[in-house]
Amino acid sequence: MNMLIENFQHRHAAHCESGVASSMLSHHGAKISEAMAFGLSGAMAFAFLPFIKFAGFPLIAYRMPPKAILKGMVKPFKMRFHFETFRDQAKGMRRLDELLAEGHIVGIQTSAFWLPYFPADMRFHFNAHNLIVYGKEGNDYLISDPVTEDPQRCDAESLQKARFATGLMAPKGLLYYPEEIGQKEVTAEAVLRSIKKTVRTMLGPVPIVGVRGIRMLANRVGKLDTADKLSLNYVGHIVRMQEEIGTGGAGFRFLYAAFLQEAADITGREELKVLAEKLNVIGDGWREFALKAVRMIKGREAFDPKLLAQMLHKQADDEKEFFQALKRAIA
């Protein structure tokens, strides 16, 4: 069985979910960038979740939880999004084929561990990896995976494994596609509303979220025991969550800065361009933290948890000042 959705354009993106959202909406006539999808859904955040362990270390998220971006598209674009999960694996695969035959591009949730085109060193059990299926050739599905530069292929057996992986955030065969998009242009109101939401998250009162979450992480890092061999793994884990898994900290700050530049044009508020520049500098601060941490991991510099903690506190200070300014800019 060969099927191909014509006119679908694969795009490279920094993050899977914002990439899928922008490709999917653009395909259906609401032409938006990845940065717009990311910003408009209010996906930028920070959360330090010591009780959720990821490979033995706490989860540190630099964005909202999975599916927040897709769901965040519903209101600004007056969308009806169809989500479907399956108990029966064969049924889930058949449904995908049916949708392709009807000419839909289909978003699916997968586990990165089972995707054969992922480099071996990157295949971890992460269940919330989103991608788009845009065709089928023989036994191979044609895949637009936003985190790869070019389109990929995946055999049916592997894709089934990936869609029905079990564990934390199990995809359960989730597939999705837009049924209706009532609004194709981004409005200034939607942009301002989303910024308000992000400001609220980042400056909110919950101790593990936003600026307060960064401080909590900083305090935890400051207390790391230099004699414990695992302490350096802890630091490496923070950097890995920041730089590697879903681009993370610095990456999302640059992505949001790109959104603010677009937001300035849409709303006519020039101040947002100045703030984009400030956020760019904050992103650089996260990169400097990563660089310093890696120098310590490599033993080029003495392991100094206090210094790392200081750098994180500085990030918290800068982000606090930034989001307060952003709040004033949209008032």
């Binding site: 993106a13 071996a120 060193d121 530069e149 790109a258």
Partner: peptide, 24 residues
């Protein structure tokens, strides 16, 4: 980065005109 198996990842950076664009 040898763990990336020849893949490239998308990042956002500032071009000469100050616009933040996507870079592989």
């Amino acid at each position: 980065n040898r763990t990336m198996g020849g893949h490239k990842r998308a990042m956002y950076a500032r071009d000469a005109d100050g616009r933040i664009v996507i870079v592989a």
